[in-house]
Amino acid sequence: MREVIIIGSGPAGYTAAIYTARAGLKPLMIASSVEPGGELMKTTEVENFPGFPNGLMGPDLMNSMQEQAERFGTEILFDDVTEVDLEGDVKKVTTGNGETFEARAVILATGAAYRELGLPREKELSGHGVSWCATCDGFFFREKNIAVVGGGDSAMEEAMFLTRFATKVYLIHRRDSFKASKTMVDRVLANDKIEIIYNSAISEINGEAKVESVVLENTVTGEKSDLDIEGLFIAIGSDPRVGLVQGKLDLSDDHFIKVEGRSSKTSVTGVFACGDVIDPTYRQAITAAGSGCVAALDAEHYLTA
């Protein structure tokens, strides 16, 4: 049996791994088979992570965290957790290829998954013009008219990035002001290729084999209009990934894992949670990292008590 298993490999998971590994707890990290590194693997430049005055690339930051975690003896498994049994002193974690691992403590750092618009054609047209990843799919929209929907930093970043390829990028937002940081909004406003469509929500995605247009509904007047586009990039936020622990741990009303006060302690003894899966408010790489540190220290305290 192991001391601790960490599920997830974003900044929270890796920080928890670095701390528990340095404490000699030989953590096993289950990092996911196709999305290790988490959300930062899909970003480009990270400019606000302390210690990097010239910024760095998201994937480079995550590779460095992995290296640092491995340096102190973290064992990393590139597989997905399909089931957890968290009751009692011995926790069981089962992976996609059917293996079960046991540990005295579990740290959940499963992060958040991209939110969908919830429109009828959205799923079918995913990969056929509907995308959640500008850095992955932007390339295919060279000299095309496309749209980004959303109002936060990630929507701004996607819109800016897509101007490298697209002729025109519409930025569709439900309100008349943005939640994104001023730096990002200023860059978007200054970019000639981006046209902002305020007070509008997408009510339909149209197209047979691929995206051809969307129907916009004005959130103030209710008026509808068509917008011809070949690509739609969705950046409307994310939801905590709690599927694994549904019914096993207490969740908040908005479906985040509940933790005790400023700690990482969940409703089950020996199970700790950190990062975006517990954070409805801040959700930054650095706050997730800090939260991962908290979970590691809580787990260490629990294991040595």
């Binding site: 995913s126 056929h128 013009g129 995308s131 990843c133 992955c136 799919d137 295919f140 929209f141 691929k210």
Partner: peptide
């Protein structure tokens, strides 16, 4: 080939 098979996202 990417155009012929209407690839707009990868891996496809």
């Amino acid at each position: 080939l990417a155009a012929e098979y209407q690839i707009t996202g990868i891996p496809a």
